[in-house]
Amino acid sequence: MSETIHPEPVTARGVIKSFRGVPVLRGVDLTVRRGEVLVVMGPSGSGKTTLIRCLNGLERPESGEIRVCGVDISPGSGSRREIARRTRAVCSRTAMVFQQYNLFPHMTTLANVMEGPVTVRKVARCEAEQRARQLLARVGLRDKCHEYPSRLSGGQRQRVGIARALAMEPAVVLFDEPTSALDPELHEEVLLVMRQLAKDGMTMVVVTHEVGFARDVADRVLFMDNGLVVEEGPAKEFFSSPRDPRTRGFLRLVDG
């Protein structure tokens, strides 16, 4: 791949978004550096999920600047068609892992993982299949290639979701509460895959409530409340000496 490598694959400035007049993001800035794990935390309804959904065009903010891998997808930066085209370009260089997995139920796990490369990136089927098998092996599901998602446990489904994301050879992977729909005993198998990914140097933006994961893996933490970034900093500082009273309150709650 001869793509330019961006030191900051994702930058967002002053992102504003509301749903039916209710403000959800009220001017959010965010920068993701290459190779880092940025964890986004905050109480429910603080706008975390909306924020990362703005980064690949799943939500259209009302205003603000968003650049992903050097592509400008800011609202008003071009015609509707043009922005849609650029958003697709962004999507083919990023990948998302969803809270509800969103695997394609009519396809086997192998076909799920092959879908992006074959349909979007026009990779030859046999090549895509070989790569998909490797990825499924990497997330520990080598023997589940021909199963349909409905026959897998939640943890297995989410691992397929991660393999499917990696198949796009993304510059950034966006995780939207990847463990929140799982039973507690299944969290670790997914987090393990994510830890490995972080160790391999993948750039990751992770919206999560998993404090343990954030503490161990995050390079930086961004804390949101009520549509604003309240606190942002290196993970060590964030957990050892949170500055904002809201952050302190939240950490007390989730940390037990």
Partner: peptide, 17 residues
């Protein structure tokens, strides 16, 4: 489910894909 469209979109599929 709307999540299906989200997943397809996030791969960079066009509307018709």
């Amino acid at each position: 489910d709307t999540g299906q469209r989200d997943a397809a979109h996030s791969m960079g599929m066009t509307g018709s894909q």
